[in-house]
């Protein structure tokens, strides 16, 4: 795979262990380059530096929450086309509706099988 066909994926997750688990799984995918952010703020800083093919974010985080991050991404002309997955423990229907209404493409409730998320990512990146 050439450098041009590399898909950059941003994982925003404050739990180190979960972040590493996801990152390890996704870096295993061919042509995927994983970037991570430990908070909403760090995500805001990293976003303009790369062209991400996909963003995966947690909801409950310090500083700004995941919903605010989705809102920011989806309102910004640069990023609004970027698919965004929510990965969270908030599994109530109203949480899910909110995430999807704000523009998330997928809403994954923890605990999840890393392989499932991995498959989902593969599917999304190929679609594009």
């Amino acid at each position: 795979m050439g450098i041009l066909s590399t898909h950059k994926v941003l994982i925003v997750e404050d739990s180190r262990a979960t972040r590493e688990l996801l990152a390890a799984a996704l870096s295993g995918l061919d042509g995927v380059e994983v970037h991570t952010a430990v908070s909403g703020f760090e995500a805001l800083k990293v976003l303009p530096r790369h062209r991400f093919a996909l963003i995966i974010t947690d909801i409950n985080m310090p500083d700004i929450n995941g919903l605010e991050l989705i809102n920011f991404v989806k309102k910004n002309p640069h990023y609004k086309e970027t698919p965004l997955f929510v990965v969270t423990t908030e599994g109530r229907p109203q949480d899910r509706d909110r995430g999807l209404q704000l523009g998330a493409s997928e809403y994954v409730v923890k605990p999840f099988e890393v392989a499932d998320v991995s498959a989902l990512v593969r599917r999304y990146l190929k679609l594009r």
Binding site: D14, S15, T18, N60, T88, T89, K110, P111
Partner: peptide, 13 residues
């Protein structure tokens, strides 16, 4: 938030 993170983390593992 601590309890929340712990719940999610423990479930993941």
């Amino acid at each position: 938030r601590g309890a929340h993170s712990l719940k999610g983390l423990a479930a993941m593992f």
